[in-house]
């Protein structure tokens, strides 16, 4: 096995060159190459973080706007409802007042009409006695040929009283 041929002078030279090459590679990577990668990765990480933060801020702003919008909407709705309720109440009040006034006027008219009816009836009743008396006298005149004015008046009165019209 050539790997175990430690008498070969190339073997020790191989190790010396290994140490040199590995050392130089380590130096180059640690000093120049890897910091470069780290800088790029760090830059990307920072940029992504910044973008995420901006997105977060925008989202918070949008949330606040939505909340404000909701508050304004609910406030407007409450105001509208209050206005509607007030209008309804005033309308009802007005209607009640109007109907009350109407009822009062009607009652007044009814009363006046009733009073008019009563006077008309009274006058009609008064005229009834006169008509009855004249009619009775005329009838008596035709039938008997004599006038009994003194007796006719009380008799008509009695008859009217008996019918409840006197």
């Amino acid at each position: 096995m050539p790997q175990l041929d430690f008498g070969n002078p190339l073997m020790i030279a191989q190790i010396v060159w290994l140490l040199i090459i590995f050392g130089v590679l380590y130096y180059v990577l640690a000093t120049y190459a890897l910091p470069r990668v780290e800088a790029v990765l760090e830059d990307r990480r920072r940029r992504i973080e910044g973008d995420l933060e901006a997105a977060q801020a925008a989202k918070a702003e949008a949330d606040a706007a939505i909340a404000a919008h909701h508050a304004a909407t609910s406030k407007a709705r409450a105001e509208a409802q209050a206005a509607i309720a007030a209008a309804m109440q005033s309308a009802q009040l007005e209607a009640a007042q109007r109907s009350e006034a109407l009822a009062a006027r009607l009652a007044e008219q009814i009363n006046a009409a009733e009073a008019r009816i009563a006077t008309a009836r009274d006058s009609a009743m008064g005229a009834l006695r006169q008509v009855s008396t004249d009619t009775t006298e005329a009838l008596l005149q035709r039938l008997t040929g004599q006038s009994e004015q003194a007796a006719v008046g009380p008799a008509v009165d009695r008859a009217l009283a008996a019918r409840g019209l006197g």
Binding site: L10, I12, A13, Q14, W17, I21, V24, L25, V28, L29
Partner: peptide, 16 residues
């Protein structure tokens, strides 16, 4: 004493 083994090391280091 630069063997082909060391040449490949050099190649690997260069590629890395």
């Amino acid at each position: 004493g630069f063997s082909q083994s060391n040449a490949h090391m050099l190649l690997a280091a260069g590629l890395i």
